[in-house]
Nucleic acid binder design. Sequence first.
DNA 1: ATAGGCCGTAAAAACGATTGCATCGATATA
DNA 2: TATATCGATGCAATCGTTTTTACGGCCTAT
Lengths: 336, 336
Amino acid sequence: MPVTIYDVAREAGVSMATVSRVVNGNPNVKPLTRKKVLAAIERLGYRPNAVARGLASKKTTTVGVIIPDISSLFFSELARGIEDIATMYKYNIILCNSDQRMEKELQLINTLLEKQVDGLLFLGAEVKEEHLQALTSTSVPTVLAATRDADNVLPSVSIDHFQAAYDATEALVSRGHKRIAMISGPPNDPLSGLMRYEGYKKALNDGGIELDEKLVATGNYFYESGLATTKAFLALAEPPTAIFAANDEMAIGAIHAIQDSGLNVPDDIEVIGHDNIRLVEMVRPRLTSVVQPMYDIGAVAMRLLTKYMNNENVEEHVVLLPHRIEFRESTKPQQA
Amino acid sequence: MPVTIYDVAREAGVSMATVSRVVNGNPNVKPLTRKKVLAAIERLGYRPNAVARGLASKKTTTVGVIIPDISSLFFSELARGIEDIATMYKYNIILCNSDQRMEKELQLINTLLEKQVDGLLFLGAEVKEEHLQALTSTSVPTVLAATRDADNVLPSVSIDHFQAAYDATEALVSRGHKRIAMISGPPNDPLSGLMRYEGYKKALNDGGIELDEKLVATGNYFYESGLATTKAFLALAEPPTAIFAANDEMAIGAIHAIQDSGLNVPDDIEVIGHDNIRLVEMVRPRLTSVVQPMYDIGAVAMRLLTKYMNNENVEEHVVLLPHRIEFRESTKPQQA
DNA sequence: ATAGGCCGTAAAAACGATTGCATCGATATA
DNA sequence: TATATCGATGCAATCGTTTTTACGGCCTAT
């Protein structure tokens, strides 16, 4: 029913091969012939079948993206970076939510490989041996975004979480705080969880402050957990005077818990978040936060993937993007 | 290089056809044969090629989704609803951002059709004649989500924006307000922009309140525009005592503008937002908002699409999901 | 005993492109 | 003039499946 390349060929009085050449911009076609073919295409309303093309050429111009949760403020921003660069390079994106469940992640990898994607972008928390196995068992290029595998065997794009957390904590230390709490992520999250916690510990240590276990709570990255853990902090005999949260949502929860108890941010307690999602501008006081360039991570990861798909040579396969702290009103201006 | 159905057939000592039957769960295979084939598949690590399958069967189990901006809180939630139902019905999603630019939207429709998607989900603001033409020129089922075309020719899933805005405004009227401002969306957005404005007008009228043009501002759905327009309201000789914003981000901007000027929400000015995104719980005071069930809209739209793709009979092709107002602290408790 | 059915399977024709190779005329070279 | 070169095009194999058709064998009903 639909018009095929064969119909166009007949209409234009040439062979399928020539039509294919015209469609694909192959220069080996006489201008006049090209014009005839183009006219026939127009007349018939021909639309190339990408599936047939994919079968014949073994390229689908499609890449698979496995993402924990597209509805998350953090990942949706990242996804946008991916998509924009993909568009720029004429790729389409098959988007899949994994909810960080390994079983689902592995199954998605398989499905995407069945669909013959030209490349794979994996975003998530932990990259385990099983992932590595599934991802390296194929020749399809893969890039990790906002995460890394322990041995850096796969290409990846992320920031230095340890250093970022160190910097945030250090900013608090240098402001003279002695009781600095941290709302950390789950410890089974190696980067945003564990690494940030390690950075926090190191900064305390370098500042000559002894770690107080009671000032460390584990959250799940959601607002509510920031609220709850901070309430517990405030009930302590010696509550903290500063809080570093492993992400912004929890930090905002912390601010509200503090405000709800009648205290003031930043006068009574200073708060620093992490990631610098758009939300940080939409609360009062606006939240000081470690900038993690989500959009850029996505964009750079996708760009990197295009290089692999083109068999271009890649100098450094583990890229760490710069981070910085954006100071706002949830921390006091730095004393001179 | 990769193992094909032919390799499996040889390994199992059967024909390709039989392997295909096994893979596709066709019951016409003797159990013993099936077992042999399964064993061969396992042994060889066979992974069916979905592209070849798509070419032969004319089904790709993939649907295209055109979305204005995946990084928006609103649309990412919707996308999640789509994806979850898609997964449930074994479809994958090709996700494309349109930024509401018609040229890009039309081009995306074309690209997705080239890729032979089994169905199309279109989310956006305005559905113009050009869209309709592009979408109906093909036999690929299409469903609109969170929007509608003027003549309801295409299936769609949304809420009654007019009524929703009416209800929100009416709630303010019934609280005794006489000066109720609205921060509306762009007027070229027929539903979230125009319809909500119409609902507002009607509610004022029914409440015997004369429309004051100075109390109507046009925003762009972003926080900053809520902030800016509200500042202007407050500079009025007779500022409003209540504000209805066409979406939550602008409403939160309004709250902050009010607070920044030293006034109190809700004591001095009450504020109602629209959409009930997750943000509304993360500000103080928490925002009263019209609940637009984004996730459900996505889910229902995708479900509807599956019916069309299956040639099932569909009773009602324009579905309006229910809305309601979730009252929080940005409005005062209703007087008895 | 024979015709008719049914089951399980094989064979082969699509599906709609890409692409290596052959061809062919024309121009350039010797 | 004969030959090498080259640009433009056609031919046909190929990509890895699905699906239609046909067929052999076995069972059952008459």
